[in-house]
Nucleic acid binder design. Structure first.
Length: 558
RNA sequence: GUCCCAGUAGCUCAGCAGGAUAGAGCAACAGCCUUCUAAGCUGUGGGUCGGGAGUUCGAAUCUCUCCUGGGACGCCA
């Protein structure tokens, strides 16, 4: 890390009076390249030394070990440091050539396990844009964690239990037709669900029937169970098509229903610890500074929180996780606060490794999309359109490409995933098909295109890694690229710490921009191509690896 | 009513463990393909960083307050 270099030098000059941490905090990266590569502001030192900042800056600038730097300047209270570009460049490139796609990886000496709860769509409902967010954000966090040395367990906590299935069973018995469900399962089941809610607005007793049907389901009624299992199987088949397209796999599909026979134990545990309190016929756990957490309803049936408690305990027993994260929408923040608080009260130390990773909603006309009213945009359709558009682009721009269909798939899906990951996850997103299908500017295809350019260059230049490789020459236009490449490991670190894939997406855009600028200014396949191709190769490695961490493919040509 | 998240260019967003002239993409306009893929590159215009107060040598960034939008708040998940 470049900062560390200056920290060490400053320590030599300033002695013990300032700690490494303080110096590290103060050092910054100037906004303009004319101000150097690293800068040290002296305003805080002014009080300590009782001297004007610009005087201190002058003094430090004179005393720094100049042999390490190309140039050191004092400007208006700042010490600006210019690094030895060729030295840093070669160190960076050498590391990438050596480590290849392992560049930026971390290895833990002891085994560390992370479970991640992601995607978790509801059975019998279409896979909506909202579930896409949990799926792609979660998948990227899983990939980043693996890169950081974790064993990751991906859990698809299917929404396959609850009163809604009672409602669905009632709706199916009242209005459903077997052959329609067989023909188009999700669509037909969803229509029944929507119809149920419309009818229930007129006739409130339907809701009671729904609850009654769920109670039968939960107590093992065979008729109800048969229907439930059928709905679940058909739905999962449809979801698998989407996961295959997105290139996402799971280690567990244990949904809520899986915890059905593990709930009594949870209720017993709560009772044993004297945490259960009766309130209006329901059993609750009272919490400090939070609304109480409902454990069982008046009719004795369980709730979402009960199932999540059972799931958390099961996961700790099964996987002994160090970290357990839940990639679930922001609107459920309170639920997770309550869940963690109850586990805390139960005395489970391991609850400290748990985290809710929330994300913003997909809005339509500034408002939440309502599944109940049947107004949803289907991911399936969006994917189809994206691939078609990508194919059209390939036909126009690169008609001789060998595997057009596969490339179109990678580009179309890359556009959709990148669009979702490039912004901070807590921001709400206004749904816009046009934005998702954009392939120019700050998009996935832009990064993929840049990667394809590096591939072509390496192929044409017949680049090979040699043992005696040296970097004897560096274009000044390549310097910004070097600084970025050098920073890749820190970016991955930060993305992991903050569970924030957008850090990587933004970084890839920066690398792409820097490279495309270089590409436009410098003729790469030329007399110095040995040096230049080593940089191109490093860019390719970082772009490909970065895209992989987002769950996006890197076509060699497009 | 209480709590949580957000408000930066016409639009979408970066920047927010305080620092030097507030950045990008899209859209608009003007250029660049007889030379490595133009899904690219270069340039121009565009801002009271929601309002106000405070802390500080210094605030888009920290604190308070108000305004606006969204969400959550016991028998849905």
């Amino acid at each position: 890390m470049l900062k560390q270099l200056l920290v060490t030098s400053l320590k030599e000059v300033l002695g013990k009076e300032f700690s490494q941490e303080t110096l590290n905090r103060l050092i910054e990266i100037p906004k303009h390249e004319t101000l150097g590569d690293l800068a040290f502001p002296c305003f805080e030192l002014a009080k300590h030394y009782r001297k004007a900042p610009h005087v201190i800056a002058q003094e430090i600038a004179c005393k720094l070990d100049h042999s390490k730097y190309e140039r050191v300047e004092a400007v208006g209270g700042y010490v600006n440091v210019f690094l030895k570009k060729k030295t840093i460049a070669w160190e960076t490139i050498k590391k990438v050539l050596l480590e290849k796609e392992a560049y930026g990886s971390k290895v833990h000496t002891e085994k560390k396990t992370m479970t991640i709860d992601l995607s978790s769509p509801n059975i019998a409902k279409p896979f909506s844009m909202g579930h896409l967010r949990s799926t792609v954000i979660g998948n990227s966090i899983a990939l980043i964690a693996e890169k950081q040395g974790y064993d990751v367990v991906r859990i698809n906590h299917l929404g396959d239990w609850g009163t809604q299935f009672g409602k669905l069973i009632v709706a199916y018995k009242k209005w459903g037709k077997k052959e329609n469900v067989i023909k188009n399962p999700i669509k037909e089941l969803f229509n029944l669900y929507v119809k149920f809610h419309m009818e229930a607005e007129e006739d409130a007793s339907l809701n009671d029937h729904g609850r009654e049907a769920f109670k039968q389901l939960e107590s093992g009624n065979e008729d109800a169970l048969f229907l439930w299992k059928w709905f679940r199987d058909e739905s999962l088949k449809e979801f698998m098509k989407i996961y295959n397209q997105l290139g996402i796999r799971f280690d567990s599909y244990h949904g809520e229903a899986f915890y059905n026979d593990k709930m009594d134990a949870v209720v017993t545990m709560l009772e044993e610890r004297g945490l259960l309190v009766e309130s209006d016929g329901a059993q609750v756990v009272e919490l400090e500074n939070l609304p109480p957490c409902l454990i069982t309803k008046r009719d004795g049936t369980t709730l979402y929180a009960t199932r999540d408690l059972a799931a958390a305990i099961y996961r700790q027993q099964t996987y002994q996780f160090n970290k357990s994260v839940y990639v679930v929408g922001n609107e459920q923040s309170l639920h997770f606060k309550q869940l963690f608080a109850v586990l805390e009260k139960m005395g489970f130390e391991w609850r400290k490794g748990m985290a809710h990773v929330p994300f913003g909603m997909i809005l339509k006309d500034g408002k939440k999309m309502s599944t109940r009213k049947g107004k949803v945009v289907l991911l399936e359709d969006v994917i189809k359109e994206a691939i078609q558009l990508a194919l059209k682009n390939i036909e126009a721009k690169n008609p001789t490409l060998i595997d057009k269909e596969e490339t179109a798939k990678q580009v179309g899906i890359g556009a959709i995933i990148f669009h979702d990951l490039k912004n901070y996850r807590l921001n709400d997103i206004e749904f816009s098909l046009a934005d998702m299908l954009r392939f120019e500017g700050e998009t996935g295809p832009y990064v993929q295109y840049t990667h394809a350019r590096t591939s072509t260059l390496l192929k044409k230049g017949k680049f090979q890694i040699r043992d005696n490789q040296q970097l004897s020459f560096l274009d000044k236009e390549a310097w910004p690229i070097i600084k970025l490449l050098q920073n890749f490991p820190q970016v991955i670190n930060q993305a992991m710490e903050e569970y924030d894939p957008s850090k990587i997406a933004k970084y890839l855009l920066d690398v792409s921009k820097a490279f495309n600028h270089y590409y436009a200014t410098v003729k790469i396949l030329n007399e110095e191509e040995g040096n230049r191709l080593a940089i191109v190769y490093s860019v390719k490695v970082v772009l490909k690896e970065g895209l992989r961490l987002l769950g996006i493919a890197s076509p060699e040509e497009m």
